[in-house]
């Protein structure tokens, strides 16, 4: 395994965690109930912790987070999607946390550079997945309105889910098996939530592997502008 492979996988996984953590941070003060202020911040903090470990495997965490431009980020397009309403945030969490739980579960079992991180992270993402599942059940099988919103959210994010299962160089897992397990787990939750499993494609001409290649959706540049502005305004400063 070469250093380049190691770097690209750590960067991809680190960017996923960094970007999703940032999106969840945008909820602070706006959650529908106080318990969710605590829960969403908790998840955001776990992800930020993972991001810091992964980015530090590649280089300086702050240089990587604050000084790369949009085209150099390797995160999935799924995690950069705007929060939308609470249902969108929960659908994004369900899709991504199920993926992370499967991936880190496997990485924790094999000897490799990500085993240590995965062993710790898998406990965190099990909680994230449980949280997303519980809310999917409440919203899907709640009121007509919440069912409608949850259904729409699951549909609209579906086309970003295929990208998760493109093999990452340096991550030695059975990606096809991962995808099957993911589909089974998510389908089970959606069924229990009285929701349909979306039927559309899980990727398209543009979304297929695009985030991993540094091709992002439009809102991502704005997100980075906000995130990086202060750091970039004071070159060389320490905080």
């Amino acid at each position: 395994m070469t250093a380049t492979v190691h770097t690209s996988a750590a960067l991809a996984l680190g960017d996923d965690a960094l970007v999703l953590s940032h999106r969840l941070g945008e909820w602070a003060g706006l959650a529908p109930v106080l318990e969710e202020e605590v829960a969403l911040a908790n998840i955001a903090l776990d992800l930020l912790g993972q991001a810091r470990v992964l980015l530090s495997m590649v280089g300086n965490e702050d240089e990587l987070a604050y000084l790369r431009e949009e085209r150099a980020f390797r995160n999935l397009q799924l995690v950069e999607q705007p929060n939308g309403d609470f249902a969108h945030t929960i659908a994004r969490q369900l899709y991504f946390s199920t993926y992370q739980r499967l991936l880190y579960g496997r990485l924790a079992e094999v000897q490799g550079e990500f085993a240590g991180l995965a062993a710790k992270a898998v406990k965190e993402v099990a909680y994230h997945q449980d949280h997303a599942e519980q809310w999917t059940l409440r919203l899907g099988d709640g009121t007509d309105l919440s069912h409608e919103r949850m259904s729409r959210a699951c549909e609209s994010l579906w086309r970003f889910t295929g990208e998760m299962f493109l093999p990452l160089e340096g991550v030695d897992v059975d990606w096809t098996g991962m995808k099957d397990a993911w589909l089974e787990s998510v389908s089970d939750v959606l069924h229990r939530a009285t929701l349909e499993v979306p039927q559309g494609p899980q990727s398209g001409a543009w979304t297929a592997g695009a985030g991993r290649q540094g091709l992002h959706t439009e809102s991502f540049g704005r997100m980075l502008a906000e995130m990086q502005h202060l750091h970039r305004s004071h070159p060389g400063a320490t905080w």
Partner: peptide, 29 residues
């Protein structure tokens, strides 16, 4: 704004709890 926009979420949690007889809103952990 947070409270008003979150009303449908709290209503969903209450409706779900009523159907399934478990705790409604709240962190699961």
């Amino acid at each position: 704004q947070a409270h008003d926009e979150g009303a449908w979420v709290r209503e969903a949690a209450a409706a779900h709890a009523a159907k399934h007889g478990n705790a409604g809103t709240g962190a699961t952990h």
